[in-house]
């Protein structure tokens, strides 16, 4: 992944490749890569030893993001329609139900990002309809990631696309590419300190369809 030439920081526009041969009149959809979105990074380790202690923790705050405007949204705006998705550790939420005032939602599409050209008609968007319910299922091997317990690493599952209904009711597709700083997963042999300090930095790419259609 070092070979990929990315502009560090948010709003790194990689490619603008969309096929719009259906003649619906929609404007081309860009694919944008966002790098190193800090999502409640580790600030300490609880005292003691497992199972009662020794757990790394962050400040407990979500990082809010607007796919529509391709920028971070202040957490003071968490109760607004300004954001579409938010990240905290491995949890990714949408602006819906118990977590936001908007009518957002999401589901996990199994397949390639580039193969998802139209959201299937029979898709059902899930909403955050309970304090413990997530539109994007939380937990290892359920939503977007799998936890490698042997090496203590989080790996995004390949072939998973998060299909998002934004706060304004439009559609976007998101592929999580990496969970570690710089978009590089530490080596299995790396120290726990490195694995702890470089985690919770999202690299992802997304396409946002501003015309309200379900076609990318």
């Amino acid at each position: 992944m070092k070979k990929a030439i990315w502009v560090i920081g948010f709003m790194a526009v990689l490619a603008a490749c969309s096929k719009d041969d259906k003649g619906t009149g929609s404007i081309p959809v860009e694919t944008i890569t966002v790098k190193d979105l800090a999502a409640d990074t580790i600030i300490g380790i609880t005292p003691g030893a497992p199972p009662t202690g020794g757990m790394p923790f962050g400040a407990g705050k979500y990082s809010f993001y607007s796919l529509e405007s391709n920028q971070m949204v202040a957490s003071s705006d968490s109760a607004s329609n300004k954001w579409d998705i938010a990240f905290r550790g491995t949890s990714i939420i949408t602006n819906s139900g118990n977590r936001g005032p908007a009518a957002g939602g999401a589901f996990v599409y199994i397949g390639l990002f580039s193969d998802l050209k139209t959201i299937p008609k029979d898709s059902s968007f899930k909403v955050e309809n309970a304090p413990t319910a997530f539109a994007i299922p939380s937990g290892s091997n359920r939503g977007w990631y799998v936890y490698d317990g042997l090496n203590n690493l989080i790996n995004p599952i390949p072939g998973r696309v998060l299909v998002i209904r934004t706060a304004s009711g439009k559609y976007a597709k998101v592929e999580i590419l990496n969970y570690y700083k710089g978009g590089i997963t530490p080596a299995a042999s790396a120290s726990d300190a490195i694995k702890t300090n470089t985690q919770r930095y999202y690299t992802f790419r997304f396409s946002y369809q501003s015309n309200g259609s379900t076609t990318f």
């Binding site: 992944m1 390639l112 599952i157 978009g183 690299t203």
Partner: peptide, 14 residues
């Protein structure tokens, strides 16, 4: 075609 991996860019591929 139900199993995926990642290419050199980190993007999913079959």
């Amino acid at each position: 075609g139900q199993v995926f991996t990642r290419d050199a860019n980190g993007f999913s591929s079959k």
